[in-house]
């Protein structure tokens, strides 16, 4: 499986104009890769995840292409995408676990879902049961109502159902955010095992929680204000991130062990720009401590070492390793 995204632009229609939620994003995902897509609210990561599968009426595809295994995906055509949805690309949307019908038993809901996709429930049941056991859910979960399951259990249930037909690409949108710390670990590890067991070839894991991504993702892509700031293998990103935003973001995370009295962490002052009329040039310019005149022109997203790309003019100067905390 290979995914190539070239200069993808997706805007939201509103009465006040177009919100440029995704404004020119280019990257690739290789076979078997788990890519983490991180960023803060409003950066466009959820738009990116949704636009690959579920471009709805409010969004419009303004430009760019998506190629899955060499085939261009007709993301703007909701009906044409039906052919790819669930079989080739699957998504776990952001509030999936809250969307389970409370008055339906889980097994019945799964059956209806599969029948609507043209899959015979009876035929696929053995595989379904095998996977449920794999993620640590007993078979009796099919006889229960959603309210009887905990958040972590519901989320794992949704994960199994979304990947039942072995899609090439899975997009997981904030699946750990609403969970407790112990469930987060179970869900994240289940996600990794799906790739290891080849239920899914590659994944895009969308979340604001960089530390979870560090645990399970092979590569990390950081977005800011609708554009990609940096993309690199996870270890490289943690040790030698080059984009000022990435470095400040990582520096603002309290790893267990850092204490206020010893080392006061700093956040990033200011707020992201409005996507209705984004500024020209580098979008991080107003908050960047390293901004120079050249930043009035938008920096290109260039590869600085194999697999590591950054969008910053000063990438050659930012060569010092990340300051370690305490």
């Amino acid at each position: 499986m290979s995914l190539h995204i070239t200069d993808l632009r997706v805007y939201y229609r509103t009465l006040a104009g177009d919100v440029k939620a995704l404004d020119g994003v280019t990257f690739e995902i290789a076979d078997g890769e788990i890519m983490g897509l991180a960023g803060e609210s409003g950066c466009g990561k959820t738009t990116l995840g949704n636009s690959l599968v579920l471009l709805d009426g409010r969004m419009k595809h303004v430009g760019g292409t998506v190629m899955l295994d060499g085939i261009p995906l007709p993301i703007a055509d909701f009906d044409a995408m039906r052919h790819f949805r669930y079989r080739d690309i699957s998504i776990i949307p952001q509030y999936a676990m809250s969307a389970l019908n409370p008055i339906r038993k889980i097994g019945k809901m799964v059956g209806e879902l599969l029948e609507s996709r043209g899959v015979r429930y009876g035929e696929i049941r053995p595989e379904l049961e095998r996977r449920l056991e794999l993620v640590g859910l007993g078979l009796d979960v099919l006889q229960r109502y959603p309210i009887e399951l905990s958040g972590g259990m519901k989320q794992r249930m949704v994960m199994v159902v979304s990947t039942l037909l072995d899609p090439s690409l899975l997009i997981a949108d904030e699946i750990t955010s609403a969970l407790d710390v112990s469930s987060q670990k179970a869900v994240a590890q289940a996600l990794q095992s799906f790739r290891d067991q080849k239920f899914v070839r590659s994944m895009i894991v969308v979340t604001h929680d960089v530390s979870i991504l560090y645990q399970i993702a092979d590569t990390l892509a950081v977005m800011y204000a609708g554009k990609l700031a940096e993309k690199a293998p996870t270890d490289v990103m943690m040790q030698r991130a080059k984009h000022p935003y990435t470095r400040m973001l990582i520096a603002s995370l309290p790893e267990v062990g850092v204490r206020y009295a010893e080392h006061k962490l700093t956040g990033i002052a200011g707020t992201p720009p409005s996507l209705l009329n984004p500024p020209t040039g580098c979008r991080f310019r107003d908050r960047c401590p390293l901004a120079i005149e050249q930043c009035a022109e938008e920096p290109p997203f260039v590869e600085v070492e194999p697999g590591h790309s950054v969008a910053c003019w000063r990438v050659d100067e930012v060569a010092a390793p990340k300051d370690s905390a305490a």
Partner: peptide, 11 residues
């Protein structure tokens, strides 16, 4: 809150 603003409120 976002990660970058959390720290400000925490501080």
């Amino acid at each position: 809150l976002d990660a970058s603003t959390r720290i400000d409120v925490l501080n």
